[in-house]
Simulated scan of single mutants.
Amino acid sequence: MPETKKRPPEKPGPSDLFHDFTAREFKKAAVWISMAGGTALLCLLIQPILLIIAGLVFASLLDDGTRLLGRVLKIGRGYRLAIVCICVAIFLAFTLYLAVYQLGGQLDALQATLTTQFINIRDWLVSNGLMSPHVSSSDIAQRLFGSFGEVSAFVGNALGAVSGGAMIMVIGIFVAIEPHLYERGFAWMIPIAKRPDFYRIFNIANNNLRRLMAGRLLGMAIEGVGTWLLLLATGVPMATLLGLLTGLLAFLPNIGALISGLLICLVGFSQNVQTGLWAMGVYAIVQTIDGYLIVPIVARRSVNLPPALELGAQILLGALFGIMGLALADPLVAIAKVSLEEYSKIVTEREEHQQRNHVKQFMLNSRNKDDE
C-alpha cells in the first residue's frame, strides 16, 4: 500500500460564510467593489450631480437674499423668501426679454464685427511675416467660428434647456425653504460621534459660500452696469449687449474678465482707433474697481482664493465637465478649502486638548508621588 501523506490543515473556503476569515475577505471585496462601482456611477451621473450642486448654490443665494431682506423687513422668513423668489423671477424674465427681443440684432452685428476684426488681424500678421500667406481669410474665419459655433450651440442649448434651469431653481427653492431639514439629512449619513464636527464645518462653509456668492453678484452688477454706462457715454457701439455679457461673464473670475475685455476692445477698434482706446480705458476702469474694491471686500468677508488656484480649478473642471464645471469651479474650491482648513483646526484642537490632559495627568501623578 502506498504511504499515506499527512494532509495540511484545512482552511475555510467560500462556502464557510460565517467563518471569521471568510467574513473578513468578503468585507474587503465588498469595499473594493463598492469603490469601483461608486467611481463608475459618479462618472456616469456627473451631469445630474452638477445640476444638484448648482441647485444648492442657488439655494445659498436665496438664503443670503432672505437674510439680507430680514434686516429691513421684520416679517416671517417664508414671506421674505417669497419676495426674493419673485424678484429673481422678474429679473430672469426681463433679462430673457432683453436678450431675445431687444439684443437679437446686436448679437448678429457682434458676430459680424468679430469676424471682420479677426480677419484684419490675420492680414496684419501676414503682412508682417508672422503668418503664412497660404492661409486664407475664409479659413481663419471658418476655424475661428468653428469653435465659436460650439459656443453659439451651447448658448442655444442653454436657452432651450428650460428643464435643466427649472430643476436648478426648484432644488434651490426647496432647499431654501427648509435648509435645516436637508442639513440633518446629510448629518444622518455620518456617524453620531462625528456629527458635531460636521455641523461646525457645514455652518462655516455655508456662511463662506453665501458671502462669496453675494460678493460675486455684487461684482457682476457693478461690472455690467458700469461697463454699459461708460461704453454708452464714450460712444462705443453695442453698449447694452457688451454690458450684459460683461456682467454675466463676471461670474467667472479671470477667464470671464479676459473674454469680456477682448470683446469690448475688438468692438471698439472696429469703429476707429479713438473709440478703441476709449473701450480699453472703460475695461481698465471697470476691472480696477472690481479688483481693488469689490474683490478685497469679498475676500475679507469670505474665503480668500488665490488667483492661480481659481484659474487652475476653472481650467481643470471646465475641461472635465464643460461649462457647468467651469461655472461651479469657484464654489466647489471654496467649499473644499474652507472644509479642509476647519477640519485641520478641529484635529489641532483635539491634539492640543489631549496634550493638556497628558500634562495634567503627569503633574497629578508627580504630585501624588511627592506626597507619598
Results as ranks from 00 to 15, higher is better:
L231A: 06
L232I: 00
T234V: 14
T234L: 14
T234C: 13
T234H: 02
V236L: 06
P237I: 05
P237Y: 01
P237A: 07
M238Y: 14
T240M: 15
T240Q: 15
L241N: 13
L241C: 14
G243V: 13
G243Q: 11
L244T: 12
L245C: 10
L245F: 13
L245V: 12
T246H: 11
L249V: 12
L252F: 13
P253L: 05
N254M: 12
N254I: 15
I255K: 08
I255V: 14
G256Q: 06
L258Y: 06
I259L: 11
L262F: 11
L262M: 12
L263F: 08
I264N: 00
V267N: 00
G268D: 01
S270T: 06
S270I: 08
Q271D: 03
Q271L: 11
Q271F: 00
N272P: 05
N272T: 04
N272G: 04
Q274T: 09
T275A: 06
G276E: 02
G276L: 02
W278H: 07
W278T: 01
A279C: 05
A279N: 01
A279D: 01
M280N: 03
V282E: 00
V282N: 01
V282H: 01
A284L: 14
A284S: 10
V286E: 02
Q287P: 02
Q287F: 02
T288M: 12
T288S: 14
I289A: 12
I289N: 08
D290R: 05
G291M: 08
Y292D: 11
L293C: 13
V295Y: 10
I297W: 13
V298D: 01
V298R: 12
R300A: 07
V303I: 14
N304D: 15
N304E: 12
P306C: 01
P306L: 11
P307L: 12
P307I: 08
A308L: 15
L309K: 15
L309G: 07
L309T: 15
E310K: 15
E310W: 00
E310M: 15
L311P: 01
A313R: 06
A313I: 04
I315N: 11
L316Q: 07
G318M: 09
L320H: 02
L320T: 02
L320G: 03
F321S: 07
G322P: 04
I323G: 05
I323D: 00
I323N: 05
M324H: 06
M324K: 04
G325H: 06
A327K: 07
A327E: 02
A329L: 07
D330I: 14
D330C: 08
D330M: 13
D330W: 07
